[in-house]
Amino acid sequence: MDFKIPFKKSFYYVVFGCGRLGSIIANELSAKGHSVVVIDRDEASFENLSFDFTGFTLIGEANEIEQMREAKIDKAHAVFVLTPDDNTNIMIALTVKKYFNVNNIIARVYNPKNIKTFAKYKIEIVCPTMLASNRLKKFISKGEKQ
């Protein structure tokens, strides 16, 4: 798994989902001077973007292949898959990887059971449940030591 962000010149990023997490990432990439496209089916979600956001927004079903083509996903240096639905994220990530041959993908999953599916296809994931539980587990073991 080799998800890396090259930051020397302007890069082209596509972000699926403009919820709380998606908008933070899109704002951050834009603030660093990169070109960013955010896709969300809900136009109102783009209000989460900051005033300084200079990227482009596309309204549409994120997992539609037509939408991905319009976003020029095949030219993306990295793709962030952050819709709130695990199955949608799995499909987007696999489509980006297998159909558009873009390898630099990171996806969010809520259900830890889905981590296996992503691992098989070598797609980097971030799982909030796991992040939180690992953190809490450390907290517990710390308490036990005292």
């Binding site: 010149k9 302007s10 890069f11 082209y12 990169h34 070109s35 496209v37 990227g55 482009f56 596309l58 976003a71 020029k72 030219k75 993306a76």
Partner: peptide, 8 residues
Amino acid sequence: SIPFTPDE
């Protein structure tokens, strides 16, 4: 065409 990439 919009959106465009830096390389374009």
